[in-house]
């Protein structure tokens, strides 16, 4: 891919493209997967620099991926009775043992911090003000739900799960980062209360 196009993508994020160039770029984006991935990278950089959340197709990246997986046709399963005895060699492979319990604590913290969050009434999906719109779940940082009770419980599960299963990579860290990122996204809600 040429540098020129990358420059154009960059220019687009700086609002420096005219309508014609813009249209041309969008057309190319639609056709070129490599370009799309570059575009997402720019989007990420741009967001990080601006420190704001975005409304981009990139936002649905993980969701789209999951959707794709879900749409796959069912594949034949092995009938595996789960009564088999626990197997000692099935220890998780590796992992920085940074803890899930860490994240558990973080959750406890979040509950304490944000009283509006814990046993709050679920936000009615259709009664959202524009302000609430701005804190809609972003793929990756929060459960993609609008139901605090469920999210909290899922958090508890996730934390407990990772405590017993530090996976092959730095999963412990990830789970912490996941939960830690949680309330920063929630923050605008607090501000508005």
């Amino acid at each position: 891919m040429s540098d020129k196009i990358n420059e154009q993508i960059s220019a687009m994020f700086d609002d420096e493209l005219n309508a014609e160039e813009y249209e041309l770029l969008i057309r190319r984006l639609k056709q070129d997967e490599q370009l799309q991935s570059n575009w997402q990278r720019y989007q990420l950089i741009s967001d990080v620099l601006k420190k704001e959340k975005i409304t981009s197709p990139g936002q649905n990246f993980v969701g789209a991926v999951s959707q794709q997986i879900n749409n796959e046709s069912a594949i034949e399963l092995a009938d595996t009775p789960s009564q088999s005895k626990p197997i000692s060699w099935l220890k998780p492979l590796t992992g920085v043992a940074i803890a899930a319990s860490v994240a558990a604590m973080a959750i406890v913290g979040i509950q304490n911090i944000n009283p509006g969050y814990a046993p709050a009434d679920p936000v009615p999906a259709l009664a959202q003000s524009p302000v609430q719109q701005s804190i809609q779940p972003v793929a990756g940082t929060r459960w993609d739900l609008q139901q605090p009770e469920t999210e909290m419980r899922l958090n508890g599960y996730l934390v407990n799960h990772s405590e017993y299963t530090s996976g092959i990579s730095l999963q412990g860290m990830v789970n912490y980062a996941r939960i830690a990122g949680y309330d920063s996204v929630r923050q605008p809600a607090e501000d508005n209360q």
Partner: peptide
Amino acid sequence: VFIHGNQMETM
């Protein structure tokens, strides 16, 4: 850094 979706955490 931990990048997921369009979010990034730094630790």
